[in-house]
Design a protein around this nucleic acid. Structure first.
Length: 148
RNA sequence: UUAGCAGAUCUAUCUUAUCGCCACGCCUUUUGGCGUGGAGGAAAGUCCGGACACCAAAGAGUAGCAUAGCGGAUAACGUCCGUCCAAUGUAAAUUGAGGACCAGUGCAACAGAAAGCAAGUACAGUUCGGCUGUAGUGAAACCAGGUAAACUCUAUGCGGUGCAAUGCCACGUAUAUUAGAGAUUGAGAACUACUCGUUCGAUUCUAAGGGGUGGGCAGAUUGAUUCUAAGAGUAAUUUUAGAACUAGAUAAAUGAUAAGAUUCUGGUAACAGAAAACAGGAUUCGGCUUAUUGAUCUGCUUUAUUU
């Protein structure tokens, strides 16, 4: 399977041609779309810029990655704010869910591959509805910053 | 029925719809479709004991650590079961740091002359020697006793490091430079701390400074496994037979929304609110400890009440 993917990525030389296919797409969030590579994460925190919309923070960098999707996303909740693993898992799930619902905002505008990490910097747990609103604000701010 | 004691089990939602996550299988040949499965009793603390892996004979001694009535269970244990003793409780039960102060050393509040190394009150006896007895203090008064959650001694056990182990594949690099040490008369390294002993050892070791990698596969989930039945045993446990396969992620999978059911709370009602506490697998088992919601069931004890 992995070998197959490599062949595919090599065969499509330009990613820009691919992007048109994603304009109308499903609201999935599979493994390919998530940020997993340690080297990329290292690069992200070294060179990335950030956008804030309390209690969320998005660190991004424009770079090539192995996925076929326009962007790879990672989610993090710091251990020092939430000591219990249950709380961290819960917040991560909510972040992923809200991002999944609204990623069209980003995909419809960007034309280069991006990598970013969404962190939860607040210290208190919010509900799904609240996080959904914050995520929308964050993503619109991100899009606006990229355009300029 | 109330109160108490001991133990076991479950852990909270269920249904439907829409969107979505992880693993596996099948079908398709694409940005899929279908099916099956998908966190806990503590997954936690990492406190004990194993399996497994590596450490060049995984050497010897000392030190160190652990355990401590007796018998048994077990892969093993500091765990579990039975039992004796002690303490507590009316009782069911609970708790126990329950080997040894006839090896040595230390310690002992108050009282007391004295709880050792130095003394000594009163009375009586007397072989006139502070020799003997009695009294007084105290739990204990002289060659005695208490104390080992005091050193210590005895018996038994313990090699070390941990899946970031370890093996393989791929990618990449620097044997740069500077300072110091060192060449078989041995720098340094390997076998926890020390000593001995053994072995390795020059493209070496230490410090500064800098560079690269951090991708994948195996290990990894079929196991001291779970369930049922019949025996053995007071029990922990075990034997035989049959059946079952029950998470395998890796920046780390179980979620979101809506409607209904059910339960609970508030309210005369319409209706409104809530869905539980502690908490999320990370090589894996047996325990222990700690956190904690709401139940259900079983056995037992004493007192009171009712029939």
């Amino acid at each position: 399977m992995i070998i197959l993917f490599k062949i595919k990525t090599k065969s499509f030389s330009s990613k820009a041609t691919l992007l048109c296919k994603f304009v109308v797409m499903k609201q999935t969030l599979g493994k390919q779309e998530r940020l997993k590579s340690k080297t990329l994460i290292g690069k992200l925190y070294k060179e990335g810029n950030s956008v804030k919309s309390f209690p969320l923070r998005l660190v991004y960098v424009q770079t090539e990655h192995t996925s076929q999707y326009p962007a790879q996303v990672g989610v993090s909740v710091p251990k020092r704010n939430f000591k219990k693993a249950v709380d961290r898992n819960r917040l991560k799930r909510l972040l992923r869910e809200t991002y999944r619902k609204q990623k069209q905002l980003v995909y419809s505008t960007i034309d280069k591959p991006y990598v970013y990490m969404i962190s939860y910097i607040g210290k208190e747990e919010l509900t799904y509805a609240e996080i959904e609103v914050k995520m929308e604000k964050l993503l619109t701010a991100f899009v606006a910053q990229i355009k300029n």
